[in-house]
Design a protein around this nucleic acid. Structure first.
Length: 272
DNA sequence: CACGAGACCTGTTCGC
DNA sequence: TGCGAACAGGTCTCGT
């Protein structure tokens, strides 16, 4: 479900509620949610630890405890909510941490793809991630060089977390539309100018997503409204906001991919 | 290295 | 109305 802006939005809501709270009990309701350590050790280690801060790295939530890091990835359908008072576990709850001040952190995840780690050193989980797109590390010249160091379809490459960390299916389609680049463009044919426009576009869609508190689709409403501002995602058959051409949907790397065939024409290169 | 298919899961929507 | 297919914001692994 969530991409970078949604994770950022969730963290913003959790931070004021959770910082300073101490974990009093653990209710693990789907064992495979927990990657590391064993359920028994997890409970033993986490009880009594205090939440000190919460950060994001890529699409991971990184909860700094007094003696460990609690790492959470929401994958497709995960959600985190804070509830006050007596709480009756719901059908899709996978992990519930009861805290001081009569508060609980609930990890709900219908599809059971989400994962949780409790680690002394979180870097092992992050070691294969590319740069953060909103950091200073991500520059137009880095992007141009990185695109040319591989030969891949732009859509697939932007989704690859080891290339760039944080984009998912929605924001990739939106960024490519803004940059007027076809999703199947070979990465090493992008010009310096196009790379710069793509760099601006990636940052712009992510910042807009954060500003709008992310996108809320399907049955989960978490307050964001970026879904009302999609240019191409999920809009196949509807008019491109720029030129009016019907948005098309194709499959790239097994992901639904939405683009405007006029604004994002595939430019043929080679043999002139 | 690049790419496609399959796996992991449940729920909703689409098409006949 | 019913029922199977297709689809869903993600990522890993395997075979070619």
């Amino acid at each position: 479900m969530p991409e970078l802006p949604e994770v950022e939005t969730i963290i913003s809501s959790l931070r004021p509620a959770l910082i300073g709270k101490t974990i009093l009990s653990v209710d693990l309701r789907w064992n495979r949610t927990l990657v590391n350590p064993s359920p028994k050790k997890f409970q033993k280690v986490i009880l009594g630890q205090q939440i000190q801060d919460i950060f994001r790295r890529a699409k991971f939530l990184q909860i700094k405890l007094s003696g460990s890091y609690l790492i959470i990835h929401l994958r497709m359908s995960g959600d985190l909510l804070v509830v006050l008072g007596g709480y009756q576990p719901a059908k899709h709850d996978r992990l519930i941490l009861k805290m001081t001040d009569d508060m609980s952190l609930v990890f709900s995840d219908p599809r059971k793809f989400g994962r949780v780690w409790l680690l002394d050193d979180p870097s092992v989980v992050f070691q294969n991630l590319g740069p953060e797109p909103l950091s200073d590390e991500f520059t137009p010249s880095w992007l141009y060089a990185a695109l040319h160091s591989r030969h891949r379809q732009l859509k697939a490459l932007l989704l690859d977390q080891s290339f760039l960390a944080g984009l998912g299916n929605i924001y990739t389609d939106e960024a490519l539309h803004l940059a007027r680049l076809h999703p199947l463009t070979p990465s090493d044919t992008v010009t310096v100018e196009q790379a710069e426009i793509l760099w601006i576009s990636v940052r712009q869609v992510l910042q807009e997503g954060i500003q709008r508190n992310g996108a809320s689709i399907d049955w989960v409403y978490r307050g964001g409204d970026f879904q009302n501002h999609f240019r191409v995602y999920g809009r196949q058959g509807k008019a491109c906001p720029v030129c009016g051409t019907k948005i098309e949907r194709i499959v790239v790397g097994q992901r639904g991919t939405h683009f405007c065939p006029t604004c994002q024409a595939l430019i043929k290169t080679g043999n002139g």
